[in-house]
Amino acid sequence: MLLPQIADEHDADILTLCEPHRVRQTQDWITNETKTAAIWVRGAARARITARGVGDDYVWARVGAVTYVSVYLTPNCAAAEFRAKVAFLEDGLRDLPGDLVVAGDLNARAVEWGMTATNRRGRLLLEMAARLDLVVANTGDVPTYRRPGFGDSIPDVTMTTDRTPPRIGRWRVLEGYTASDHQYIAFEVAGETRTTRTRTRHPPRWNVDKLDGLKFSAELASPQS
């Protein structure tokens, strides 16, 4: 029962979770089929849920003017599978309403969230974020993953719609005991205005990873009607 205690101590009403030890079978708990991503909405915030949904590697809930997304991307997959997972995630995020707060264990490295170098997975996620007008909300370089013998890392990332960050405050890694290899992250989302805060619908941007070169060449060669 450590999680409810920590949530109470920090007055947290929306929790995004990855690989939770326990899944609650309640209306305020949203999880995917594999139980790797979950959102728990507590207290008065439960009355403000207007929509929810589930994807393969993520779940989401719209609370007030903001859509919260919990994501888990496994480290145990080949490069091609990870690329496919990111593509599916991008398609899902593009269709979600409202400003976004995307948080989860992405199992990737990037300088933008405090690592010393950016790997291939990190580049894929940063390219996705750029196409969706998302920015990284992480600050500092405090490790969020600590396991003796395996070193420290920062696989846990928060991204937000480009105009949301001014409303994200006090982003920090909690140093208390969690009974896990991961540390909890806390931040505040303030200044919601339900009637005026709607997400701008941007035209799709090209994702060259999805380009069918042969089909594209054939379309260019075909006579115009």
Results as ranks from 00 to 15, higher is better:
5 Q>A: 07
7 A>W: 00
9 E>M: 04
12 A>D: 09
15 L>W: 07
15 L>G: 01
15 L>C: 12
18 C>H: 15
19 E>W: 07
23 V>C: 08
25 Q>M: 01
25 Q>I: 01
33 E>Y: 06
37 A>K: 02
37 A>D: 04
39 I>G: 11
40 W>T: 07
41 V>S: 03
45 A>N: 10
46 R>C: 10
47 A>G: 15
50 T>N: 00
52 R>I: 01
53 G>H: 10
53 G>M: 06
54 V>G: 09
55 G>F: 09
59 V>P: 14
64 G>Y: 02
66 V>T: 15
67 T>V: 13
69 V>R: 01
76 N>E: 09
77 C>G: 03
78 A>N: 14
80 A>E: 13
80 A>N: 11
80 A>T: 15
86 V>E: 04
88 F>K: 12
89 L>H: 06
90 E>H: 09
97 P>I: 11
98 G>T: 10
99 D>T: 07
113 W>V: 03
113 W>G: 03
120 R>K: 11
121 R>E: 03
121 R>N: 10
122 G>D: 08
123 R>A: 12
130 A>W: 02
131 R>W: 07
133 D>S: 12
135 V>A: 09
137 A>T: 09
139 T>K: 01
144 T>W: 04
148 P>A: 08
148 P>M: 00
149 G>C: 01
155 P>L: 05
155 P>K: 03
156 D>R: 05
156 D>W: 08
159 M>K: 08
159 M>Q: 12
160 T>P: 12
160 T>M: 06
162 D>P: 01
164 T>S: 05
165 P>C: 03
165 P>T: 05
168 I>L: 14
169 G>K: 15
171 W>R: 11
172 R>M: 04
172 R>E: 11
174 L>K: 10
175 E>L: 05
176 G>T: 15
177 Y>N: 07
179 A>P: 06
182 H>T: 13
189 V>K: 11
190 A>Q: 11
191 G>S: 00
192 E>T: 14
193 T>S: 07
193 T>I: 04
194 R>F: 09
195 T>Q: 04
196 T>H: 06
199 R>Q: 06
204 P>I: 02
204 P>G: 02
205 R>L: 13
207 N>C: 13
210 K>Y: 13
216 F>V: 08
221 A>S: 15
224 Q>K: 15
225 S>Y: 03
